[in-house]
């Protein structure tokens, strides 16, 4: 699966892929919380891994590792770098 250029949701990224946060959709409340925890437009984000059965997605921003529920991850739109699969082994 090659990612299309342009915005995709964090849940659509591959494990190990890097991207730049473009936008946080959904309410201002969520955007505020994510911003204060370190995820905001313009930040570099790496999708690290995701848990089976639609479990949380783990990401890394700077030195911060965070776990986000699927619904939240779906609201984070990113522009992926394209290739670059540093960490394909998420099993």
């Amino acid at each position: 699966m090659t990612p299309e250029p342009g915005k995709i949701a964090l849940t659509e990224m591959r494990d190990g892929q890097e991207a730049t946060v473009a936008e946080i959709t959904g309410g201002a409340g969520l955007a505020d919380r994510l911003t204060s925890m370190g995820i905001r437009p313009g930040k570099r984000i790496t999708r690290f891994c995701s848990m089976y059965l639609h479990g949380p997605v783990t990401v890394r921003v700077d030195n911060i590792q965070m776990a986000l529920g699927r619904g939240i991850a779906n609201k984070i739109m990113v522009i992926p770098d394209g290739s670059g699969n540093e960490n394909p082994a998420c099993r």
Partner: peptide
């Protein structure tokens, strides 16, 4: 609510 946590090193 959905999970939203920081994982400390």
């Amino acid at each position: 609510p959905e999970l939203l946590i920081e994982i400390p090193p």
